[in-house]
Design a binder for these strands. Sequence first.
DNA 1: TTACTTCTCGAAAGGCCTTTCGAAAACTTT
DNA 2: AAAGTTTTCGAAAGGCCTTTCGAGAAGTAA
Lengths: 343, 343
Amino acid sequence: MANTARSGQRRAATLNDVARLAGVSIATASKAVNGRAEVAESTRQRVMAAATEIGFTPNALAQSLIAGRTGTVGLLTSDLEGRFVLPILMGAEDAFGSGQISVFLCDARGDRIRENYHLKALLNRRVDGIIVVGRSTDPRPSLGHDLPVPVVYAYAPSDDPTDRSLTPDNVVGGRLSVEHVLSFGRRRIAHITGDIGYAAAIDRAAGFREGLAAAGVPPVAEPMFGSWTEGWGRDAAAVLLDRHPDIDGFVCGSDQIARGVLETLRDYGRSVPEDVSVIGYDNWEVLAVNSRPELTSIDCTLQELGRRAAQRIFEAIDGGPLEGGTEYVAPKIVMRGSTVASR
Amino acid sequence: MANTARSGQRRAATLNDVARLAGVSIATASKAVNGRAEVAESTRQRVMAAATEIGFTPNALAQSLIAGRTGTVGLLTSDLEGRFVLPILMGAEDAFGSGQISVFLCDARGDRIRENYHLKALLNRRVDGIIVVGRSTDPRPSLGHDLPVPVVYAYAPSDDPTDRSLTPDNVVGGRLSVEHVLSFGRRRIAHITGDIGYAAAIDRAAGFREGLAAAGVPPVAEPMFGSWTEGWGRDAAAVLLDRHPDIDGFVCGSDQIARGVLETLRDYGRSVPEDVSVIGYDNWEVLAVNSRPELTSIDCTLQELGRRAAQRIFEAIDGGPLEGGTEYVAPKIVMRGSTVASR
DNA sequence: TTACTTCTCGAAAGGCCTTTCGAAAACTTT
DNA sequence: AAAGTTTTCGAAAGGCCTTTCGAGAAGTAA
């Protein structure tokens, strides 16, 4: 109705407009709108009516200018495609959501230049904090300590131990998965995992070894490093089965690998979970739930990680000091048909 | 170094600080920093040095207050998990990136209340435009025309035809896929797709029918609607093969379904692509690239869709009128081993 | 040297909101 | 009715930056 120009181009109403319409001063309008006490009830109602009529929304810019904080947080990710970023982002949104904080999302695409560019943009916009999300659990370069806002590193920890980082605990995850398989009485357990260049592969394998050692069970073979793909899972499983036909458990470094393993097992006529137990990693629903049988997997609880990262930022914004150090987020196991007989 | 408080808590420098340090007036500092002509070169250098020294970044808030625009766009999605949102987001970031625009990301989780809440937050923050991203191609309720900023609907079009919407062209996609299969001489082609409650399923099926009709080839059976899962693909393929053993082509409504179909075909001892052609939909890389054989699929070019959505917003911000209407984005085919013999 | 042009810079306003502080109005008490 | 309280409201400043306009400095011409 009050549209002057083309649809959707109405100028945003200011407090001034409201005050004029309600016949009060700007100050009074402000107080009325913000529900402060020093305004008569009748006046308040008049102001509110005016505000509603012209669709007034307070200009957060001006508010921030005064308050010195924007209620805004930057999320600097290095790859949007990655499925890791998403749950983290959701967790962060979760934690922030109730606190009226909005998230600026920037994708640096793994490019230092672009990252710097975005960082600058975030600082210009006076975000109250920054969460840096990496695409692997390998440490990444720190943004440094000269920033006027608190920074938290999520998923990929900072290479500077005095930064605050949160990362999944892959060692515990690896251990968890082998313990689960052991609990079914399996004793001939193999580990197939991804690229040895990834800390995730190394750490999970370490957990795997640890778990076996703790149970006093010798490994069937050395952990097999390859790539994070179904194809590698298929091939590696075939090699292992040919060499060690008595294998009764596969601990996999990712769900993709696990799916490959499942396929090979079917080709070899082994029943899962009756003859062999298989466990994946990441709990990537599309893969885990759609396989036959469904895939037991380790969930990194990334959403929790995101939530905690947001909390750290929160605390730091509220004046608390942001202590350095890396926080390891515990994974959990999600049981499905590839280890537990269904129904 | 200039840290007064704890690390990362240094107050952001203002133009005032710069001016004082450089021994010039605020106005001069501003001009120097912004590279305007009315400042002597020597003065400029002095100012720049000062700015660098104290790490000055202009306060975008104050700038926006003056300019009347924030260089900020809201992205209101209804579900972050969805893999649709992501490419769109990337496309939008792409288009915006060069233009110094930052994206506010809000996830309404398919909840009207939350959506409204976020919408309000975006308006408070004075975003210059809003992109609303849905999680299916079914029309969604319009936000209305009373907003002071341009709005574009992506993926899920608005139910109000006077809004500007961009959505994938599923009819063309369906047609494209059947034409591709036909091009290999297949004449006994079936269609297995997802939930009939989705416009995507209906539209793709329509395209499928169209394509067959245009080629004068009768369908083997009515399109089978079910769910967007591998399980459904497996089951439906089995049913169809039992009933029509001569089927030589499967056009699937999603990659997940296609993977199920592939599995059943393997169980039935049919070779893909030699005996039967299979084509998926969505070109979801994890699924398409990791299957055996790799899956030919229809790509909705969502990134392109996001890019265009951003462009529309751009145009509208720059004063151009934002015309209503739905823009259909053409899909493209990505050929892989499930239709084309590899190597 | 005087008159005039060209640079170079600074004071101040403007954009929108909140908050403080003082003034005016409405009541109460004596 | 006068004096004192309480309530209600408004003027103005502040937060940070840009921009305009005018003043002063420097330089040129007569």
